[in-house]
Nucleic acid binder design. Structure first.
Lengths: 138, 138
DNA sequence: CTGCGTGCAAATGGTTTGCACTACG
DNA sequence: CGTAGTGCAAACCATTTGCACGCAG
């Protein structure tokens, strides 16, 4: 929790109960929640938080690189508090999205593109979208 | 153009001027247009087409696997008529999205994941989101 | 204190929907 | 002809915005 406060301070952001609640929700919840899921989660301890505030706080976090938006084919945005380089596993049968970390793969890709390159394109970042099915229920 | 008609017939879809125009627009336009861009493009020859119709046609095409939605971080959907396996290059400075085909890479990835696998996950499809900058203006 | 952050409610904008009408097969 | 497809306009719904108030620094 102090960890969370420090994160805000480092970025020069004011510490407010709302921001703490939202960031804490995102960090405890690794399921890449939507704005609505976050609101539901924090509403227990934070009944009066406004919808607009949640979106504003999320935008602020994104601007300051504390969280990221996750791309999906649906029209609801999902948010991710893990900023280390990672890929995503998308379930083709549900809304489930999980992180996938694989340093070996990253090195393989890096080596491949250093050797091969893409014409007229400067690569900054490569993310895999792995679509498939989870075999274990969670 | 007959090619386009055949595509619709194969899927058991009725051939209508609207569908032909929309599919033709998508196939001639490799820039992954939004619904609005498609409407603008076909409005020249097709002034009376309804917004709702465009979305319905696009949804029908997606259902019948004639086109795909492209994932972006923005809240507008973009559409892609190229169904062969390919990856995407995203420009970090503009809205430009280009296709990236690389069989060698696909083979590399396939070999890698056959060997390594992902625990409790059955991979169906892997797409790279390559973020970066285009060095040549188009 | 001073202005950034919040709550609220109204506005926005891409997309969807319902229904009567049209036209493809 | 019968039904899938279209046009139109209203509805939807996630997200944004404007503004007055509140609270962190």
């Amino acid at each position: 929790m102090d960890n969370i406060k420090k994160k805000l301070q480092e970025k020069g952001l004011k510490i407010t109960p709302q921001r703490l609640a939202i960031l804490q929700a995102l960090m405890s919840n690794k399921s890449h929640p939507t704005a609505e899921m976050i609101m539901e989660y924090i509403r227990v301890n934070h009944p009066n938080i406004a919808t607009g505030t949640v979106y504003k706080v999320l935008d602020t976090f994104i601007e300051h690189q504390i969280i990221k938006k996750v791309q999906t084919e649906k029209d609801v945005m999902r948010y991710d508090a893990i900023m280390d380089h990672h890929h995503h596993l998308f379930c083709s049968e549900s809304e489930r999205i999980e992180d996938y970390v694989d340093i070996e793969l990253d090195e393989l890709l890096q080596a491949y593109f250093i050797k091969k390159g893409i014409p007229d394109f400067k690569i900054e970042d490569i993310r895999l979208h792995v679509n498939g099915k989870f075999l274990r229920i969670e």
